[in-house]
């Protein structure tokens, strides 16, 4: 019993408890205030996933990058570039979307690997490298087109329109839940990515290496872990996540625009941080990130339900949440440090 308690009081879990606890508290407050207006319905809950799936997909890769102690500012621009490739390719060049997506994957993963290589072998700080990557992707995006392009293709339409409705049994017949709630391709992709991310981090050697590098890069090198390969692959994987996020965003808005998702990289980082990932590296988890995304998406939902507040309050609330979480992190880190030294 005491072993279980000791295991559960690991600082890493405490951050997850904090995230989940604050999410439940805010959800409960929302239910108390707007429960009669339908805040508690399944539809409201599922919509938080639908509206933020692209952030979540990107946050999976970002969490890994942050755990290694790095940062990636290029994700928003790469996602926007993906949307632009798909829109320009299908609507103007009449190429099959599958080809466009494959091309985007090559470009996104390639750029990620290149940035990882520059960070590892040229010793350029991740912040600067990925900032340059962001400028490059955004610039290329603007070179392709400055106007918003609609995506018109039957495959994209069917992919975006694909839904699984929540059903329940009434008098022996399966009927749709009222108000109608469904999950779409984006939500499935988001959840699959979370599962894949959890598997990589918790169950593979690659994942252990990620934590080891974040904990202490020099020790990891001295232990003979493949630091260079792991770091480069992490940035490559994040490139993959950015492209998938771009695909999911393209399905969500069905268009490509060179200025879409501006500043998304910092929203994604915010999701990861309120999900308990430490920017100094070494600590973080996918479950935390999942709840970080939910926590960030519940604020706009509450503001919508309130109906009187300006949407700007959402930004301020997010900032306050961020401050709160960093304070909790600081306390947890100093507390666990004291415990270890005692």
């Amino acid at each position: 019993m005491s072993r279980i308690i000791r295991k559960l009081s690991n600082p890493m879990y405490i951050m997850i408890y904090a995230t989940v606890g604050i999410f439940l508290a805010i959800y409960g407050a929302g239910a108390w205030a707007y429960g009669d207006r339908g805040f508690l319905t399944l539809r409201t809950f599922v919509n938080m996933f639908i509206d933020n799936a692209y952030y979540g997909i990107s946050a999976v890769g970002m969490t890994m990058v942050l755990i290694t102690g790095g940062i990636d500012l290029s994700v928003g621009a790469v996602a926007s570039l993906t949307g632009m490739f798909i829109a320009y390719g299908t609507t103007i060049l009449h190429i099959h979307p599958a080809v466009c997506i494959a091309f985007s994957l090559v470009v996104g993963v390639g750029l990620g690997l290149l940035m990882g290589w520059v960070i590892e072998y040229l010793n350029v700080p991740p912040f600067i490298t990925t900032l340059t990557g962001m400028f490059l992707a955004r610039g290329v995006c603007s070179l392709i087109s400055r106007e918003s392009i609609n995506i018109q293709h039957s495959m994209i339409d069917s992919l975006a329109g694909w839904k699984i409705y929540f059903m329940h049994q009434v008098n022996g017949n399966w009927v749709k839940v009222k108000p109608i709630a469904f999950v779409n391709f984006n939500v499935i992709l988001f959840l699959v990515m979370i599962v894949i991310g959890t598997f990589i981090l918790q169950r593979t050697r690659f994942g252990r290496n990620i934590y080891a590098i974040g904990g202490n890069e020099q020790s990891a090198r001295l232990m003979g872990l493949p630091v260079a390969r792991t770091k480069i692959l992490v940035y490559g994987f994040n490139g993959l996540c950015s492209v998938l996020a771009g695909l999911s965003y393209a399905l969500y808005v069905k268009s490509g625009w060179n200025l879409s998702l501006q500043g998304a990289e910092l929203d994604v980082i915010t999701c990861a941080v309120i999900g308990g990932t430490l920017l100094t590296g070494g600590v973080g988890s996918m479950i935390g990130t999942l709840f970080g995304v939910l926590l960030k998406s519940i604020i706009p939902a509450l503001i919508t339900f309130n109906g009187h507040l300006l949407s700007w309050w959402g930004k301020i609330a997010t900032g306050v949440l961020l401050l709160l979480f960093i304070c909790i992190q600081g306390i947890v880190v100093s507390w666990s440090g004291r415990k270890r030294s005692a």
Partner: peptide
């Protein structure tokens, strides 16, 4: 936040980066 709170600068300033524009919008009613 950085000097006394011991936070990482990038995160401490991220707070105002997220909030700041919201404050500016509220000051001018959007």
């Amino acid at each position: 936040l950085v000097a006394k709170g011991g936070m990482q600068p990038i995160i401490a300033t991220l707070i105002l980066m997220v909030c700041g524009r919201g404050v500016a919008q509220i000051l001018t009613d959007g």
